[in-house]
């Protein structure tokens, strides 16, 4: 009914008063800061712990002469294969470098049943979607003459171990 009431003038507080805009800015910043801290803490909580994997598992095998050249032994429930050749010993991981299925050994090489990748005995990808070669694992010899495999330590392809 009153004409001045029907059209209220909107006052923009940020423009009028420096104190208000300052307060708004600081409270926004404080809010952002506290929420991002909480968010970061939650994110860190959700991400996995890494400590468990750091320790390397060592697998002790028999003496070198138990594996004459030409033998192919499955270790670690089929996740590692030990091969003995004229050049020496080497161990290849049996996890497919495509998407992580466990390879099945053939007479020569390994085949992945998941998408049909084929690796030769040295672990190079010959066929199928896998691109990278299988990793070679570090072999060693205990003082008592037994071989061991360090299951989590990779070595360069082509480093044969001579006992």
């Amino acid at each position: 009914m009153n004409k001045s009431c029907s059209k209220p003038t909107i006052v923009d507080p940020s423009r009028k008063s420096g104190r208000r805009s300052f307060l708004r800015l600081t409270s926004t910043l404080a809010g952002l800061l506290s929420f991002s801290t909480i968010g970061a803490a939650i994110a860190r909580f959700c991400l996995p712990l890494k400590t468990r994997q750091l320790s390397s598992r060592i697998l002790t095998l028999g003496r070198p002469r138990e594996y004459p050249p030409g033998t192919k032994v499955q270790l670690q429930e089929g996740r590692i294969t030990l091969l003995s050749t004229e050049d020496g010993f080497f161990a290849v991981s049996n996890t497919c470098t495509h998407l992580g299925c466990v390879l099945q050994p053939k007479k020569t090489g390994f085949i992945c049943t998941c998408h049909g990748s084929y690796f030769n005995d040295e672990g190079s990808a010959m066929r199928g979607p896998a691109q990278r070669p299988l990793s070679w694992l570090r072999l060693g010899c205990w003082p008592n003459g037994h071989l061991y495999v360090a299951c989590d330590e990779e070595v360069n392809t082509g480093t044969y171990f001579k006992a």
């Binding site: 429930e77 089929g78 996740r79 299925c101 466990v102 099945q104 049943t113 998941c114």
Partner: peptide, 8 residues
Amino acid sequence: PQIPDNPI
């Protein structure tokens, strides 16, 4: 965990 079905 040792042998996946063939084919899966």
